[in-house]
């Protein structure tokens, strides 16, 4: 039996189930309100101000980095219940009796629900890009925006998504969500100059600073980063993502065998 149709079927349904979830939209709206209130990074004011005096590509990269600095928190929190939900609703037992493989179901679930969670984030990102486009009248902004999003934001989001799907198979969902938010501020937003050991500003951080500066010259990303460091960061983030998913699959197979 081919697993490809199973993969696309699971992806489609996981996407719709997450996309139609009210909590997804409420959470994202709360984030927008929070960011509007805090005026996060000043870039939002610049977007609706006059971005003519900025260099276009670094400015778009900075906008992507700003989105990627805060919205992965929402993505991580919203993905955390996807796997435990199967156990809670007891569909995992039913699906175990079917020929669709666990690995296929896991990858379909991971990609489908991550993509769905990404949609509102991408919509907000697109509004910003729309503002830049409106003021610059330059259609080359669109491919630039897609490239910066794919290179700066996507590896980190896939990384966050994999952990948020996998970790709650061992941790209580609210505990994971609490720890994840703590990790995000500690490992991504905390300056190393504070003196507390942190992953922030290393190539392990999913915030994408090395890619933003290394590839697109964003002065606020990771000053001094080279394109090679950007590539290293992408490979590392995606490599860990694959490793996490393979470990999750192994863990679930082991749990099944022990039942």
């Amino acid at each position: 039996m081919s697993q490809i149709p199973v993969f696309f079927g699971v992806l489609r349904y996981e996407f719709w189930m997450q996309f139609r979830r009210r909590a997804l939209w409420i959470t994202i709206i709360c984030f927008i309100l929070f960011i509007s209130w805090r005026g996060f990074g000043g870039i939002f004011r610049e977007l609706i101000g006059n971005p003519f005096h900025f260099q276009l590509l670094p400015f778009i990269a900075d906008w992507t980095s700003s989105i990627n600095a805060i919205f992965p928190i929402a993505i991580g929190v919203l993905l955390a219940d996807r796997l435990p939900r199967d156990r809670r609703t007891k569909v995992d037992e039913l699906f175990t009796t079917m020929p669709g493989k666990l690995s296929t179901r896991l990858v379909g679930k991971y990609l489908g629900s991550t993509l769905a969670t990404l949609i509102p984030v991408f919509a907000i990102y697109s509004i910003g890009i729309g503002c830049i486009l409106y003021q610059n009248h330059d259609l080359s902004i669109i491919p630039m925006a897609l490239a910066t999003f794919a290179v700066i934001a996507l590896p980190g989001i896939l990384f966050v998504g994999a952990f948020s799907i996998a970790c709650p198979s061992l941790l209580w969902v609210p505990l994971y969500q609490f720890l994840f938010v703590g990790y995000w501020f500690w490992g991504n937003l905390l300056s190393p100059r504070v003196g507390i050991p942190t992953l922030s500003k290393t190539i392990l951080t999913p915030i994408g600073g090395y890619m933003a500066t290394g590839f697109f010259g964003d002065p606020y990303g990771q000053p001094g980063a080279t394109p090679l460091q950007g590539v290293e960061s992408i490979i590392l983030l995606l490599g860990i993502t694959v490793l996490v998913m393979v470990t999750l699959w192994g863990l679930m197979k082991w749990q099944q065998a022990r039942q």
Partner: peptide, 10 residues
């Protein structure tokens, strides 16, 4: 429909 997909009804 979802169950059908998991049962390999392509």
């Amino acid at each position: 429909d979802y169950v059908g997909i998991l049962k390999g009804m392509d």
